[in-house]
């Protein structure tokens, strides 16, 4: 269950693929906000600690949001605007 709710009704939508599932998103979402909206808690495993990590800053400085996006590992999901057909893989546990 996600705690994040749309406060503003979506306009135009696009389709992206998150861990193999097809998901509807709006073009002004970033990959990070889509994942939060879906209830994703862990975006990946921190390579040094072995613990799950997740976004802390949403502005490109914390690197907690790293995902594999369109085949590129270690991409900052909070800086990546959603595009139709995008393929996103998180590396972490899914708590939702």
């Amino acid at each position: 269950m996600s705690i994040w709710k749309r406060a503003i009704p979506p306009g135009e939508t696009v389709t992206i693929h998150v861990n193999g599932q097809t998901v509807t998103a709006t073009p002004d979402e970033t990959v990070a906000t889509v994942l939060l909206r879906l209830g994703t808690r862990s975006f990946g495993i921190n390579p040094a600690s072995g613990y799950p990590q997740a976004p802390a800053c949403l502005m490109g400085v914390c690197f907690g949001c790293l995902c594999r996006i369109d085949g590129r590992p270690g991409t900052q999901a909070c800086l990546e605007q959603v595009r139709d057909g995008m393929v996103v893989e998180t590396g972490g546990l899914r708590v939702s």
Binding site: W4, K5, T30
Partner: peptide, 10 residues
């Protein structure tokens, strides 16, 4: 930022 970027609130 989540709100501004994508219109989501907790």
């Amino acid at each position: 930022s989540v709100l501004k970027q994508s219109g989501l609130v907790p």
